[in-house]
Design a protein around this nucleic acid. Structure first.
Lengths: 190, 190
DNA sequence: TTAGTTATTCAACAATTGTTTATTAATATA
DNA sequence: TATATTAATAAACAATTGTTGAATAACTAA
């Protein structure tokens, strides 16, 4: 990538994220970003459709980083615990960005792509263990635990990373193994 | 609510959803909506900030419907199975709207509010069953299963409601009770 | 039905948007 | 270092946005 392009994209993103820290996306204009970033407005439109598209790009970039991390690449070889731990570490190492992205009312759930990747990694391995179960049951189980895990992570961030990585990872592992069986009443109360 | 207001809001939403069926939100203009809906542009701005705000309002309204449904109101008295079933029924009864809302790349997860409400309903009851567990563990378990369930529902919709309500509800209940214990290898493969 | 309230319209405004063209500057690489 | 390529700028354009104040129409409640 051309140096100039690299600089332009960086300064746009940086300026935008600074504004997003202070105010809502709906009141951030392209003109304003360009004035602060000191770049031509036409240059902005060369790379982004509008400010929402810009946000989407930033999210996407962060997600690619997660997707290309060791934790995802090699998840077949890892326990849920250590896998989760690696993901959580990425989040904690990007606190500033993560806080901004998760603050927007449009939610964390650009992370859905991670679920899709993880799904592909899981499904082949699981099929060997439970070949007799109905296809959709296993599929739903994968989706269930990954979305469950993301929910817990989301909550962890909303509480400003107050639990330790180890606590969250253990908690998620326990949920994957046991669901909520320890809490749910055995018989329905009529 | 004034009859005129009711009419205005309805025609705006209807027009907007029609456009959203055909093209991306980023190319839908306020001017265009108002021309088709045959209302003054100033009237649009009386109620909505922009098209994104309009979408948010539509999502919010649908969510309020869910939140006010019997299934949520009385979830203390229901099994996970029957609770899920009622939610799924609301979705199936609103197929057209649901398809549009879930098609947007910004995801289903305006439904997070449902998790919050469900959380409040669950937590008191669960505390009686497992008073000795650490606070955050139980909290995470609630969040985990509701987010897991929403993920499965999301997937159900993305696959255009191809499973029956009963199948999905049973599948979700099984995940809540067992997590993915039947699929996950007992020992980590090193 | 009437009086008072409130929503909608209309028209006009500056600001922002999205696009385009020619010009200038920076970069890659041979 | 010189040359070809590509990016950024500047300036101008119509269209859209977001806001306003006055006039009109629709509604509610008495």
């Amino acid at each position: 990538m051309d140096r100039r392009t690299k600089y332009t994209k960086n300064i746009i993103k940086e300026t935008f994220l600074n504004s997003l820290e202070k105010k809502d996306i709906s009141s951030i204009t392209v003109t304003e970003i360009c004035k602060i970033a000191d770049i031509n407005r036409g240059t902005f439109y060369r790379y982004y459709v509008d400010v929402y598209d810009l946000l989407k790009n930033i999210e996407q970039e962060f997600m690619d980083e997660i997707k290309n991390s060791n934790s995802i690449e090699q998840m077949e070889n890892h326990s849920i615990y250590s896998f989760t731990k690696e993901i959580l570490t990425i989040f904690e190492n990007n606190k500033k960005l993560v806080r901004i992205l998760f603050n927007t009312d449009r939610n964390i759930y650009f992370l859905n792509e991670v679920v899709e990747v993880a799904y592909d990694k899981c499904i082949g391995r699981w099929e060997k263990i439970q070949p007799e179960s109905k296809g959709y049951e296993m599929e739903n189980a994968v989706i269930f635990i990954f979305n469950g895990a993301l929910g817990v992570i989301n909550n962890w961030i909303k509480n400003d990373f107050s639990l330790s990585i180890d606590e969250v990872a253990k908690s998620i592992e326990a949920c994957c193994m046991n669901g909520a069986r320890n809490y749910i009443p055995k018989k329905t109360v009529k």
